[in-house]
């Protein structure tokens, strides 16, 4: 079984304040740490579990600048066999559909049985790449998978619906499966794994080597165009209590008491 896992390197903004830069089209990133997009980490774990059971090869595929290789090396250290970085030169302004098209150009050249992705890119909040990639390839897909079983000529996935119920779905193979978080426990890289990762193959491609023309990608290839980024205004703002921890807590305790909330 040859499995590709599409991963994205993103800034970790979960616990930090976001500021927009002077261009109004990007965020200030120099103080942010970069991590693997979390759902992709679950997709990678699922691929590694599958390889442990049925053998085969796990290939990481990512679109991004040189720094993306840090994330790819971590994935290799966790156990992926090979990595491919498609350089993002010429891809500025590409929307998720265009990026799915770039990935599709790669997957048309290589033979894979399965492509795993995360269900959402946590930076742009696009949940599009998996299903769009599948459509470009003419393969079936499933979004929000949290369980995956590989059968003879097909796969069975359980995908999460609102309210926590699961849809059980059968897909022909090859297919694209986009994973939600929580279905497994992603491993950490071992010291040995980190050492081995240094010598594992990492292929570098660009849009020209995938046979893509510049006008098919970037701004010209995209049907959406970014106007501006901004921090949304807090609409019905909470009453923010001021003072030391003791003072703030005393105020909250008084409110709880006066309103009879307990």
């Amino acid at each position: 079984m040859k499995v590709a896992v599409c991963v994205k390197r993103i800034p970790d903004t979960a616990e930090s304040e976001i500021k927009v830069d002077d261009t109004g089209k990007d965020i200030i990133k120099d103080k942010l740490a970069f991590i693997i997009n979390e759902p992709d980490n679950y997709a990678l774990e699922e691929a590694l579990i599958l390889r442990e059971k049925s053998g085969g090869t796990v290939v990481l595929v990512s679109i991004g600048p040189k720094e993306t290789e840090e994330v790819l090396r971590i994935g290799l250290a966790k156990g992926a066999d090979e990595a491919v970085r498609i350089d993002n030169a010429g891809l500025a302004g590409s929307d998720a559909i265009v990026l799915a098209g770039v990935l599709a150009a790669y997957f048309r050249k290589e033979q894979f049985d399965l492509v795993f992705t995360g269900c959402i890119a946590q930076d742009t909040q696009d949940s599009q790449v998996g299903p769009a990639l599948a459509q470009f390839l003419g393969w079936p897909h499933a979004m929000y998978a949290i369980r995956f079983e590989n059968k003879d000529n097909e796969v069975v996935v359980r995908r999460e619906l609102e309210g926590g119920s699961l849809e059980v779905k059968r897909l022909n193979r090859p297919c694209v499966v986009s994973f939600q978080t929580g279905g497994n426990a992603p491993r950490y890289a071992s010291i040995l794994g980190i050492r081995q990762a240094r010598t594992k193959p990492l292929e570098r491609l660009d849009i020209a080597s995938l046979g893509l023309e510049q006008d098919e990608v970037g701004d010209t290839g995209s049907k959406t165009r970014l106007i501006k980024l901004y921090v949304p205004k807090v609409s019905s703002a909470a009453e923010i209590l001021q003072g030391t921890v003791d003072e703030k807590v005393s105020k909250i305790a008084t409110i709880i008491k006066e309103k009879g909330l307990l």
Partner: peptide, 15 residues
């Protein structure tokens, strides 16, 4: 549209 867990918004024009 929302980005970064709702901490950022983007305005986009769409064909």
């Amino acid at each position: 549209r929302g980005m970064h867990g709702g901490k950022l918004n983007a305005d986009l024009s769409v064909k």
